Amino acid sequence: MVASAVTRSLAGVLLAVAASVGVLSGTADGAVKRVAADDGAKITAEHWIDARTVDLTVRSPALGASVPVRVLVPRTWKRATKASWPVVYAYHGGRDTYVSWTRSTDIAKVAAAYDVMVVMPDTGWAGWFTDWWNGGKRGTPKWETFHTKELLQLMERNYHAGTHRATMGVSSSGYGAVKYAARHPGMFAYAVSLSGILHLTQTGVPALVMFEASEKYDPFRIWGIPGIDDKNWKANDPYELAAKLKGTGLYLASGRTGLPGAHDPAGGEPVELQEVVCGATTVAMVDRLRKLHIPVTAHIYQKGYHDWSTWQPEMHTAWPLMMKAIKAKKLS
């Protein structure tokens, strides 16, 4: 009986240690109990890549599908605690995946210097950070609902993500980061857009984004038909929502020419027209914010590709601004 009690005690200690350092893996109905989101969204699988990196699978009613999420936890993170941590929600752009930030930047190293969590969810091949219009019927997919309701609740209820939040994105996800901050005032203390589409209804831009979406979807399903469903387009346009960004810290960066910059590899495209468009919308957004007397840190540069080679150094500049805004302490 004594040996059995000791064995049970030792097993309990080992389980607690494993949980605290983050080496448990399995499904939601396994060793680790999960709490669902209000609408029933739940974490169905958890796989630890290393002591600080975990990949989750989320079954989302808002999307009508299961999608992956990558999370970086800080060195001080423990599963069994009442503490919470400030968090950065970092989104990937179109044609990319939830692993893009850890694959294409040194975000894991940068984040490790701070007591902060980083959540990198799937955003769809071209989900466009929007609860789709679907001819006015709405319904799935609801990307905005997934990111701003389901995911936040799951991270806060199961992984101790706090309410001091920042959001960051590149390209189409730069649009998503700023749009979410504007449509949900107070949800994010800081928003970062690197080469984002920040004026969705600017002349020529609707055609561009619909052309990109049309490679995989009926583009009219997302925001509706321009000219007919303009109210919905404007309701999802960061430029039109700019006044709601008062009180949110902002870092907006983009190139103007699409020419290769100092950080870009040789032998690339002579001009990246996508960056020209993103630069034009970012300039329009910065001008709009300044007319509204809303503080914004802007870096509008002439040369630089629409690529991670340019975005990584911009992330390094924006990072300490985000950390200050969400009160993330620097670790020794």
Rank of each mutant, 00 (worst) to 15 (best):
D50P: 07
T257D: 12
D55E: 12
T248K: 08
R8E: 02
G261I: 03
V88Q: 07
L63R: 06
W223R: 06
A235G: 13
D29A: 14
I228E: 13
K137G: 08
K303N: 15
P265M: 10
R34P: 10
A243P: 08
W128I: 01
D229C: 03
A242W: 11
K330D: 06
K42C: 04
V88M: 07
P265I: 06
K291Q: 06
A31Y: 14
Q274G: 14
I49W: 08
G268E: 12
D218I: 05
V271Q: 10
G204S: 11
Y239R: 05
D55I: 03
P219T: 04
G169F: 10
K324Y: 12
V6S: 00
L152K: 10
Q302W: 03
H47R: 15
G247N: 03
L245Y: 08
Y159K: 00
A328N: 13
I222A: 04
A191I: 12
A45Y: 15
W101A: 06
V170D: 05
G247L: 02
L14M: 10
E156R: 14
D55W: 05
G139K: 14
S25R: 14
A62G: 09
S193D: 05
A51E: 01
W233R: 10
P295A: 12
S171F: 03
S25L: 09
G135W: 09
P320Y: 09
Y217N: 04
E212P: 02
A262Q: 09
R59D: 15
E212L: 08
S171Q: 01
Q302S: 09
V118W: 02
E269I: 02
H316R: 04
L152W: 00
P206R: 07
K330E: 14
H306S: 11
N134K: 08
V71W: 01
